[in-house]
């Protein structure tokens, strides 16, 4: 809380970014009833999706992003030596050292949009959405899974800066990969999108990050949804695998670390 005005401006700018996104889809939905015919992603279902994206992103930006950047810097300056010497798991130490609280504002905004959209869905006329406590618990659980998958991608990317010396495109890569997770996964499942769909579901599972919790909560297809549960099962597996593989990558990268200090 040392730089209060700066903190406030950071909060405002992260909120305005989300507001712009919201505005964009508000405009899109003035032209169309849903994203994908018969996909069930109507306006408020989609806003649940959008809010979920913000929630997960704000978790990542608050807890992981500042640390991943710091990590690249530690490698370049050779200060990683000190982290390695400490009697604590290195990955744990460098992953949760810093917290960027201002990014949490996006999460609050997400929460607001989420509650608003859910209340709209719950009062929709033919088939109102009914939320069971189990759904809410599962939603929160899968938010955690999504964050864990993104964390794995990020820590793997950050670890590559050991090999590359300095990884300035870390941010860019991160942005380009997570960009795919921002929309319902069905939209890629067509013609030349199929390889992308397979790649980002099974190899780098960023597509399940937002899709699974949002699908569980907004329930766009209701009882006709045949792949909700298989997908949720797969997401669990994908989370485990991502954490495991990123751990391997991190360890392998540490083995090739040669200190840069004098």
């Amino acid at each position: 809380m040392t730089f209060r005005v700066n903190f406030l401006i950071q909060c405002i700018s992260s909120v305005s970014w989300s507001a712009m996104n919201y505005g964009f889809f508000e405009i899109v939905f003035s032209y169309t009833g849903s994203i994908g015919a018969d996909s069930g992603w109507g306006k408020y279902e989609y806003f649940v999706f959008l809010a979920t994206t913000w929630l997960i992103n704000s978790l990542i930006q608050t807890f992981c992003m500042p640390n991943a950047q710091e990590f690249s810097e530690l490698i370049r300056t050779g200060n990683l030596d000190f982290a390695l010497l400490k009697p604590i798991d290195t990955q744990f130490l460098i992953s949760f050292q810093k917290v960027e609280w201002s990014s949490l504002t996006n999460g609050f905004m997400g929460l607001g949009v989420l509650i608003y959209s859910l209340s709209q869905l719950a009062s929709r006329s033919p088939t109102p959405l009914v939320l069971s406590p189990l759904t809410i618990v599962l939603y929160i659980f899968y938010l955690g899974c999504g964050a864990a998958i993104l964390y794995s991608v990020m820590i793997s990317l950050a670890a590559t800066s050991i090999w590359l010396g300095r990884n300035q495109s870390l941010y860019n890569f991160w942005f380009y990969i997570t960009n795919f997770s921002r929309y319902p996964m069905e939209i890629y499942a067509r013609s030349w999108g199929l390889p992308l769909f397979v790649l980002f579901t099974f190899v780098i599972p960023v597509l399940v990050v937002v899709n699974v919790p949002a699908r569980l909560l907004a329930d766009p297809l209701q009882s006709q949804d045949t792949w909700k549960w298989p997908l949720a099962g797969f997401a669990l597996f994908a989370t485990g695998m991502s954490l495991f593989v990123s751990r391997l990558i991190f360890k392998a990268a540490l083995r090739s670390y040669r200190s840069a200090s004098s």
């Binding site: 994908g36 015919a37 929309y183 939209i187």
Partner: peptide
């Protein structure tokens, strides 16, 4: 892909 889907829906 996003616009493809949107236009198809419309």
């Amino acid at each position: 892909f996003l616009w493809w889907t949107i236009f198809e829906t419309i």
